[in-house]
Amino acid sequence: MAGAARRRNGLVAQDRMLEEAMAAIAEDGLAALTMSALADRLGTSGGHILYYFGSKDLLLLEALRWSEAALGEERAALLARRTAAERKLDQFLELYLPRGARDPRWMLWIELWARAPANEPLRRAQEEMDRGWQDDLERILTTGVARGRFAPVADVAARASELLALLDGLSTRVVLGQRGTDRRQALSAARSAVERLVPPL
């Protein structure tokens, strides 16, 4: 029983560290996040954080996994709703796009993309997290076509991949704060693209 309590406490501690890391990234940017800065925010030591994560790279990866897991639960709830496929697709777009220029999840994604080609574990983690979005989008498209809400799609997987690539591009523009591309404009552009790529019936 004591061992189980320790494991639970450890999970709580990790969640608290990841939550605080995401908050720090949103407030001060990714470059300002160091183990010592995070330790100061948490009132602990850098060594304590290293005990759980081993390195800053692993901390960042786990922070992204933690954030993606929460969004995965939101997507599961979305897919379970009794709403039309086109409404689900629109809500999927809203979940996918960053909330603004300082969205910590997207700042982590951009960092992961830059490091993944030279880091096999990071590349595998990227593919794993991407797969969840791809699978759920394919489900929405397949259901929409089957129920006569969308025009037939010859290759659902390819169309979903195309849409996700477009969303990645829009998201990067929002996070980088490029002129004329805030969340509202990105969402409008995404909706216009969806109308062309997945036309309603």
Rank of each mutant, 00 (worst) to 15 (best):
L64W: 07
A160I: 05
R16P: 00
R131I: 07
R81G: 05
R196M: 15
A85R: 07
L58S: 07
Q178L: 13
E195N: 12
M17S: 08
G169Q: 08
R115G: 06
R131V: 02
S36P: 03
A26F: 02
A39D: 02
I25T: 03
R6H: 09
Q134K: 12
L197H: 12
N9F: 05
D155W: 09
R75W: 09
M107H: 08
A190K: 05
F150R: 11
E62I: 07
Q185N: 14
Q134E: 12
A114N: 03
Y52K: 02
E86V: 10
Q185C: 09
E62L: 12
R8N: 11
L18V: 02
S36K: 04
A118H: 14
L166T: 14
Q185M: 12
D90K: 10
A151S: 09
R87S: 04
A154V: 05
R149I: 13
P199E: 12
A158G: 07
R183F: 14
E73V: 04
Q134Y: 10
A70Q: 10
G29P: 04
I140Q: 08
E127Y: 11
M22Y: 09
E74D: 15
R16V: 14
L97M: 06
L197P: 02
M1W: 15
V174Y: 05
W66C: 10
P200W: 05
F92H: 09
R191D: 04
T83G: 11
R184Q: 11
L164T: 02
R81C: 12
E86R: 13
G148P: 10
R173S: 11
A114G: 01
A101V: 14
A151P: 00
L60N: 06
L167T: 00
L167W: 03
R131H: 15
L59F: 02
R179L: 12
Y96A: 06
E27Y: 08
N9P: 02
R82L: 12
G3M: 12
L112T: 13
A193G: 04
L58M: 07
S55C: 03
L42Q: 03
R183L: 10
L95M: 08
R159W: 12
D136K: 06
R173C: 13
Y96R: 04
D168C: 07
L79D: 09
L197V: 09
R16I: 06
M22K: 09
Q178K: 15
G47N: 00
F150P: 00
